[in-house]
Design a protein around this nucleic acid. Structure first.
Lengths: 104, 104
DNA sequence: ACATCATATCGTAATACTGCGATATGTCAG
DNA sequence: CTGACATATCGCAGTATTACGATATGATGT
């Protein structure tokens, strides 16, 4: 895990906000869940469009931001049908917390 | 404390390294302490020149990097005579750790 | 196959960061 | 006051980031 890349990803206010919104997807993205045939294991995952709407950014920017957060490991993505669901990678976030709380 | 600014400061490998070196100043900057008339309360503070040498960067870059780390609160500085001594702001670092370990 | 919807990727102009040398400011010794 | 030293600030060229619209890819339903 490249800490420098991770900090860079978090240095953008919108990306930081997205990561925090994803702590409580059901509260922050209530419209999520209306997708046809979404299996239970994707509960907690949020699609790009919902994040785009909530953050008030363009579709391409939303996709790019989510990619940045995924590349550094903070988010996990899974495509299901037309949608790509993003959710927090709690392991990576815990690793980051350990680093900041210990080695830093 | 602006977390976004703090993460940006840490997104540079050299700045991150400097902050970690300052965890153990006596081990990482053994030449520090040869300054005339340095009072005890500055023990643990390291001057710009020492950091410049250790990091292998120019004097202006060292000064600028330390300024970035100080502006976001991660470092504290104190001028004494010709030298400016920088040391970690453990309170701010603890606050950051709490944020990453809790709110993030 | 085709139209539609969701997302990804490309190309871009504006803006910010990087790291340096040159120069200015501040401090001490003589 | 002057010279030497430590640090701060300025100006700059190279590079990266930002955020977008346009376009491409991929999936679904008819």
């Amino acid at each position: 895990m490249d800490m420098t890349e991770t900090f860079k990803a978090l240095s953008n206010p919108t990306r930081l906000q997205i990561l925090m919104w994803l702590k409580d997807p059901e509260a922050n993205f209530p419209e999520q869940g209306g997708h046809p045939g979404v299996p239970d294991e994707l509960k907690g995952g949020v699609c790009v469009g919902s994040i785009r709407d909530k953050a008030g950014i363009s579709q391409s920017t939303a996709s790019q931001y989510l990619d940045v957060l995924q590349r550094c490991g903070l988010l996990l993505s899974e495509r299901h049908g037309k949608w790509t669901y993003f959710r927090r990678n709690e392991e990576a976030i815990a690793e980051l917390a350990e680093f900041v709380g210990g080695e830093l």
